[in-house]
Design a protein around this nucleic acid. Structure first.
Length: 236
DNA sequence: GCGACAG
DNA sequence: ATCTTGTCGC
């Protein structure tokens, strides 16, 4: 059982849901059951007073063996100055299964988040949020367990989509089972779009606006890029 | 049944 | 995810 409304550890972040203990799934069946149990907790509305000052970028890099590096960077949302960084070395215990991606990366990411000394206002995750077969991708899972607003930014879509216009900022709906689950967002002209979906405590418009704001120079948000290079560096 | 399927 | 050279363009 997940123990609700208790702190997992007492640090910068207070965990709304016990993130991994004691019943962390070890089988696909148990993982799907946990997703379906947590899915109703997802919120798609933005707090009226939400101000994103500190943005966290999360990414996991893999080595040749079964080692991985979970990296979290916290940036000033305006200046993009680094406020905090944490890297955690771990192993991949759960196989990569589409739809269960979170179970591979979430434990190490949670450990990294727990070691932050600056609390972020928003989590920018490398993967899907609601654009997921059970509407509970990595970004939703991280959002729900931390209680923080979160957004998923994926490099490839889960399903078919229509290509947005070439202009930066243009977007098209991402549909799954006749339902809008996110957007294909052009973050830079002449470059493939990214696939944005709500994770938690955010509406889709705001999610896209926050992502666009972080894509100052490249296709991917600066948060994701920094976390990626930090993890890559630590793996060597 | 078969293929597709975030990283 | 990761393995990689060159190449086009700002």
């Amino acid at each position: 059982m997940t123990s609700a409304t208790t702190c997992w550890r007492r640090t910068t972040l207070k965990w709304i849901i016990d993130p991994v203990e004691p019943d962390w799934p070890r089988t696909p069946e148990a993982a799907i059951a946990l997703q379906e149990r947590l899915r109703p907790l997802v919120s798609t509305t933005t707090d009226p007073g939400l101000e994103v000052r500190a943005v966290a970028g999360l990414d996991v890099g893999y080595a040749d063996d079964d080692r991985l590096a979970a990296a979290v960077v916290v940036l000033d949302a305006v200046t993009l100055e680094t406020l905090d960084e944490v890297v955690v070395l771990g192993t991949s215990d759960f196989p990569y299964v589409p739809g269960l991606f979170a179970f591979r990366e979430l434990p190490s990411l949670v450990t990294a988040l727990d070691r932050l000394s600056v609390a972020p206002d928003l989590l920018v995750c490398d993967g899907q949020g609601l654009a997921h077969p059970r509407r509970f991708g990595l970004a939703c899972h991280l959002g729900v367990v931390t209680g923080l607003p979160s957004v998923g930014v994926a490099k490839t879509p889960m399903g078919p989509f229509t290509m947005p216009d070439d202009e930066r900022g243009s977007a098209t709906d991402l549909l799954l089972d006749d339902e809008v689950v996110g957007r294909a967002l052009r973050t830079r002209a002449g470059v493939k779009p990214v696939f944005v979906s709500v994770g938690h405590r955010l509406d889709l418009d705001r999610a896209c606006a926050e992502v666009l704001r972080l894509c100052t120079e490249f296709r991917l948000p600066e948060t994701t890029r920094r976390a990626d290079s930090l993890g890559r560096l630590q793996l060597r």
